[in-house]
């Protein structure tokens, strides 16, 4: 490729991406922020007069209940994903590169189908399991329980935990593990003192990638939880589409955005701190 053509391509793609981000992320976010300071209008839209009422409403116990409930759900999901994802990712790194690639592909393949459709599939699956189980235990219920919601969330989010964990573990220098053994460390000590600290960036990244989206995954709770367990995403969606209270929905959104920004800030700080093998000097 000639330099001028490469340059042209580079400019074109940067422009496209910038426009895309501006139109679909930046401007909508600004609109949401602006809306959060407006009043609800009679005809279900907004009145252009400044107010902080919407933010005051966030402090309402009802809202806070939803907020904590969804944080709780997100936390459990993150924890279980970590519990499954960590050994899974570690196992992946133990295979030869070729097999690794195939297994990694298997982790990614579900993304080729819309997660909404996959949740419908899970719903049907859970329904079938529930029916079969009822032959033996007539009282059992799976669908529309917190358990069903968790299963759906964990299923949806697990790859987001595995992938960053895998990438930090893959970068982990095997010689560090050998060095620890060489100095007398048992496998357990090697794990606690070397592998775990050096994979903290992956743990944090994976946890962020799971925790934050779960707060907004309203369709999982809708479909599998029967609207009993709701996350902030449900609340925002309902306020926008059902209650038509755009200003309050916007304020709630801004609240979540700020929360996420803070978590991402903590993430970046901790990445710098636990810099890991990234810092190793290449001679």
């Amino acid at each position: 490729m000639t330099p001028s053509k490469a340059n042209w391509l580079k400019k074109a793609s940067i422009t496209t991406i910038s426009l895309w981000l501006a139109i679909f992320v930046f401007i909508p976010t600004l609109l949401v922020i602006a809306t959060s300071f407006l009043r609800v209008g009679e005809n279900n839209f907004v009145i252009f007069s400044f107010t902080l009422d919407n933010y005051q409403k966030i402090l309402d116990p009802v809202f806070f209940h939803v907020f904590f409930a969804s944080c709780y759900l997100a936390l459990i999901t993150t924890f279980v994903c970590l519990l499954i994802g960590y050994p899974f990712a570690y196992l992946l790194t133990q295979f030869s590169p070729n097999i690794r690639r195939i297994l990694l592909l298997l982790v990614i393949i579900p993304f080729w189908t819309s997660s909404l459709i996959r949740i419908y599939a899970i719903k049907i699956l859970l329904l079938q399991i529930e029916r079969s189980l009822r032959f033996f235990y007539p009282d059992v219920s799976i669908l529309y329980t917190e358990m069903a919601v968790l299963i759906g969330l964990i299923y949806t989010m697990l790859p987001f935990m595995i992938l960053p964990l895998f990438s930090t573990m893959e970068k982990l220098d095997r010689r560090l593990i050998e060095a620890a053994q060489d100095l007398g460390a048992t496998p357990r000590q090697t794990f606690m003192r070397i592998i775990l600290p050096l994979t903290i960036p992956g743990i944090i990244a994976g946890s962020m990638l799971v925790f934050l989206p779960v707060l907004g995954l309203f369709y999982v709770t809708d479909l599998l939880g029967g609207a009993k367990n709701i996350v902030i995403g449900n609340l925002i969606k309902n306020q926008f589409l059902v209650a038509r209270n755009w200003p309050f929905a916007s304020a709630a959104s801004v609240f979540v955005i700020i929360l996420m920004a803070m978590l991402i800030f903590v993430y970046i700080k901790s990445i710098n701190r636990f810099g890991g093998s990234r810092h190793e000097k290449v001679q």
């Binding site: 560090l176 050998e178 060095a179 053994q181 060489d182 048992t186 050096l198 190793e280």
Partner: peptide, 18 residues
Amino acid sequence: ANKRNVCTVFQNYALFPH
């Protein structure tokens, strides 16, 4: 390896970066 009284100096040192 962890039970042998032999220590290694690795080629690229393998110092613990953290």
